[in-house]
């Protein structure tokens, strides 16, 4: 693995959250280069694991403007071509308002406020649920 690839993976740590569910927290600024790196990492992992869902948590993204939104749309389209649905989590009230204010339409992209909601949604779509053990 070359240094650039290693750096790409360190900046964009994607994890298997559950069978068929990946998660990638995005922190900091997202420019075109970073967006391409995120897309590459996500698609390679989807190819490797054949996962059906990827949760992209954008709570740590400094600014979500029209450029970032366009990157997100491209990423979700690419994952969908591989049979994987992207769920965007971490949309804060401020970001939601600024997206509306900027006239940005995320289309059919599934968004949630919290990572836990995104995870619950993915599990539900997979026909799974978390049940509290009565003994504990």
């Amino acid at each position: 693995m070359d240094l650039e690839q290693l750096e790409k993976q360190e900046n964009n740590p994607i994890n298997v959250l559950w069978d068929d569910v990946l998660m990638l927290p995005v922190i900091g600024m997202v420019d075109s280069k970073r967006a391409q790196d995120i897309m590459d990492i996500m698609l390679e992992e989807i190819e490797r694991t054949s996962s059906q869902f990827v949760i992209m948590d954008v709570r740590g993204v400094v600014v979500v403007d029209s450029a970032v939104a366009n990157h997100i749309v491209k990423i979700t389209k690419a994952t969908s071509l591989m049979g994987c649905t992207t769920i965007i989590s971490g949309i804060t009230p401020l970001v939601a308002q600024s997206l509306v204010h900027l006239g940005i339409d995320l289309g059919d992209i599934v968004t949630t406020a919290r990572v836990s909601d995104a995870f619950s949604l993915a599990l539900k779509k997979l026909g799974l649920s978390i049940v509290k053990n009565e003994q504990s």
Binding site: M39, L43, E44, I46, E47, K74, K77, L81, C84
Partner: peptide, 24 residues
């Protein structure tokens, strides 16, 4: 559809709504 092609198609502005894709 492999990762490279998916990435290229997204950059080309391809609209995947016409097709239903699965991983396996």
């Amino acid at each position: 559809i492999c990762a490279g092609i998916a990435s290229t198609l997204a950059l080309l502005g391809s609209d995947p709504t016409n097709i239903q894709a699965f991983g396996t």
